[in-house]
Protein backbone atom coordinates (compact mmCIF):
# COMPACT_ATOMS: atom_id res chain seq x y z
CA UNK A 1 0.00 0.00 0.00
CA UNK A 2 2.72 2.43 1.00
CA UNK A 3 4.69 1.33 -2.01
CA UNK A 4 1.78 1.96 -4.38
CA UNK A 5 1.07 5.34 -2.81
CA UNK A 6 4.70 6.33 -3.16
CA UNK A 7 4.65 5.27 -6.80
CA UNK A 8 1.61 7.44 -7.50
CA UNK A 9 3.00 10.50 -5.74
CA UNK A 10 6.33 10.19 -7.51
CA UNK A 11 4.60 10.56 -10.83
CA UNK A 12 2.51 13.50 -9.69
CA UNK A 13 2.54 15.10 -13.12
CA UNK A 14 0.38 12.29 -14.53
CA UNK A 15 -1.97 12.60 -11.58
CA UNK A 16 -2.44 16.34 -12.22
CA UNK A 17 -3.05 15.90 -15.93
CA UNK A 18 -5.56 13.13 -15.40
CA UNK A 19 -7.44 15.36 -12.94
CA UNK A 20 -7.44 18.15 -15.53
CA UNK A 21 -8.78 15.74 -18.13
CA UNK A 22 -11.58 14.76 -15.80
CA UNK A 23 -12.46 18.40 -15.16
CA UNK A 24 -12.85 18.88 -18.90
CA UNK A 25 -14.84 15.67 -19.27
CA UNK A 26 -17.20 16.72 -16.48
CA UNK A 27 -17.79 20.06 -18.19
CA UNK A 28 -18.79 18.34 -21.44
CA UNK A 29 -21.23 16.01 -19.72
CA UNK A 30 -22.77 18.14 -17.03
CA UNK A 31 -22.87 21.74 -18.17
CA UNK A 32 -25.92 23.23 -19.79
CA UNK A 33 -24.54 26.04 -21.88
CA UNK A 34 -23.12 25.00 -25.25
CA UNK A 35 -20.11 27.31 -25.06
CA UNK A 36 -19.18 25.91 -21.65
CA UNK A 37 -19.28 22.43 -23.14
CA UNK A 38 -17.00 23.55 -25.95
CA UNK A 39 -14.59 25.03 -23.41
CA UNK A 40 -14.67 21.74 -21.49
CA UNK A 41 -13.80 19.89 -24.68
CA UNK A 42 -10.83 22.19 -25.19
CA UNK A 43 -9.65 21.64 -21.59
CA UNK A 44 -9.86 17.87 -22.10
CA UNK A 45 -7.80 18.00 -25.28
CA UNK A 46 -5.24 20.36 -23.75
CA UNK A 47 -4.80 18.05 -20.78
CA UNK A 48 -4.08 15.13 -23.13
CA UNK A 49 -1.48 17.31 -24.88
CA UNK A 50 0.22 18.18 -21.58
CA UNK A 51 0.18 14.50 -20.64
CA UNK A 52 2.07 13.56 -23.78
CA UNK A 53 4.61 16.34 -23.44
CA UNK A 54 5.46 15.23 -19.93
CA UNK A 55 6.38 11.81 -21.31
CA UNK A 56 9.40 13.29 -23.03
CA UNK A 57 11.07 14.82 -20.01
CA UNK A 58 14.58 13.70 -19.07
CA UNK A 59 16.49 14.62 -15.96
CA UNK A 60 19.26 17.12 -16.64
CA UNK A 61 18.64 17.36 -20.38
CA UNK A 62 18.17 20.42 -22.55
CA UNK A 63 15.89 21.31 -25.47
CA UNK A 64 16.42 19.24 -28.62
CA UNK A 65 18.21 21.88 -30.68
CA UNK A 66 21.72 20.75 -31.31
CA UNK A 67 24.36 23.37 -30.68
CA UNK A 68 25.87 24.75 -33.84
CA UNK A 69 29.45 23.63 -33.70
CA UNK A 70 31.43 24.03 -36.87
CA UNK A 71 33.25 20.72 -36.77
CA UNK A 72 30.58 18.35 -35.58
CA UNK A 73 32.83 15.43 -36.36
CA UNK A 74 34.71 16.09 -33.16
CA UNK A 75 31.82 16.42 -30.75
CA UNK A 76 29.64 13.37 -30.49
CA UNK A 77 25.94 13.96 -29.87
CA UNK A 78 24.54 11.95 -26.99
CA UNK A 79 20.83 11.34 -26.88
CA UNK A 80 20.94 11.54 -23.08
CA UNK A 81 21.63 15.27 -23.22
CA UNK A 82 18.49 16.18 -25.12
CA UNK A 83 14.88 15.64 -24.24
CA UNK A 84 12.76 13.35 -26.34
CA UNK A 85 11.53 15.30 -29.40
CA UNK A 86 8.90 12.81 -30.55
CA UNK A 87 6.08 13.73 -28.11
CA UNK A 88 6.55 17.38 -29.03
CA UNK A 89 6.10 16.58 -32.70
CA UNK A 90 3.01 14.51 -32.03
CA UNK A 91 1.52 17.22 -29.91
CA UNK A 92 2.05 19.91 -32.54
CA UNK A 93 -0.36 17.85 -34.58
CA UNK A 94 -2.76 17.44 -31.67
CA UNK A 95 -2.79 21.18 -30.95
CA UNK A 96 -3.65 21.92 -34.58
CA UNK A 97 -6.40 19.32 -34.49
CA UNK A 98 -7.87 20.79 -31.31
CA UNK A 99 -7.86 24.30 -32.81
CA UNK A 100 -9.58 23.01 -35.94
CA UNK A 101 -12.25 21.20 -33.90
CA UNK A 102 -12.76 24.34 -31.80
CA UNK A 103 -13.24 26.43 -34.93
CA UNK A 104 -15.81 24.07 -36.41
CA UNK A 105 -17.62 23.69 -33.06
CA UNK A 106 -17.91 27.47 -32.69
CA UNK A 107 -19.19 27.83 -36.25
CA UNK A 108 -21.86 25.23 -35.53
CA UNK A 109 -22.72 27.00 -32.25
CA UNK A 110 -23.27 30.21 -34.22
CA UNK A 111 -25.60 28.27 -36.55
CA UNK A 112 -27.51 26.97 -33.52
CA UNK A 113 -27.81 30.51 -32.17
CA UNK A 114 -29.11 31.80 -35.49
CA UNK A 115 -31.85 29.20 -35.43
CA UNK A 116 -32.91 29.17 -31.78
CA UNK A 117 -31.73 32.54 -30.42
CA UNK A 118 -30.31 30.86 -27.32
CA UNK A 119 -27.34 28.74 -26.35
CA UNK A 120 -28.75 26.95 -23.30
CA UNK A 121 -29.37 23.34 -24.11
CA UNK A 122 -32.56 22.91 -22.06
CA UNK A 123 -34.18 25.94 -23.70
CA UNK A 124 -33.24 24.66 -27.14
CA UNK A 125 -34.74 21.25 -26.40
CA UNK A 126 -37.90 22.96 -25.14
CA UNK A 127 -38.12 24.93 -28.36
CA UNK A 128 -37.67 21.78 -30.41
CA UNK A 129 -40.35 19.86 -28.57
CA UNK A 130 -42.96 22.60 -28.85
CA UNK A 131 -42.40 24.48 -32.09
Amino acid sequence: MEDILRQIIEKDNYWIYITLMMVGLYAIIAKNNLVKKIVGMNIFQTAVILFYVSIGVKKGATIPIIEHVHDTAHTAIHAVDYINPLPHVLMLTAIVVSVATLGVALAIAITVYRRYQTLEEDEILKQIREP
Binding site: L34, M41, F44, Q45, V48, F51, T101, V112, I124, I128
Partner: peptide, 21 residues
Protein backbone atom coordinates in the same frame (compact mmCIF):
# COMPACT_ATOMS: atom_id res chain seq x y z
CA UNK B 1 -29.00 19.32 -37.63
CA UNK B 2 -26.61 21.86 -36.00
CA UNK B 3 -27.50 20.74 -32.48
CA UNK B 4 -27.21 17.08 -33.51
CA UNK B 5 -23.84 17.79 -35.07
CA UNK B 6 -22.64 19.60 -31.95
CA UNK B 7 -23.56 16.60 -29.80
CA UNK B 8 -21.71 14.43 -32.31
CA UNK B 9 -18.67 16.71 -31.96
CA UNK B 10 -18.63 16.31 -28.19
CA UNK B 11 -18.94 12.56 -28.19
CA UNK B 12 -16.68 12.10 -31.18
CA UNK B 13 -13.94 14.23 -29.65
CA UNK B 14 -14.13 12.29 -26.39
CA UNK B 15 -13.81 9.06 -28.39
CA UNK B 16 -10.85 10.30 -30.42
CA UNK B 17 -9.08 11.63 -27.31
CA UNK B 18 -9.57 8.30 -25.56
CA UNK B 19 -7.97 6.62 -28.56
CA UNK B 20 -5.09 9.13 -28.39
CA UNK B 21 -4.66 8.44 -24.67
Amino acid sequence: APLASLNYIFMGTIGACFYLL
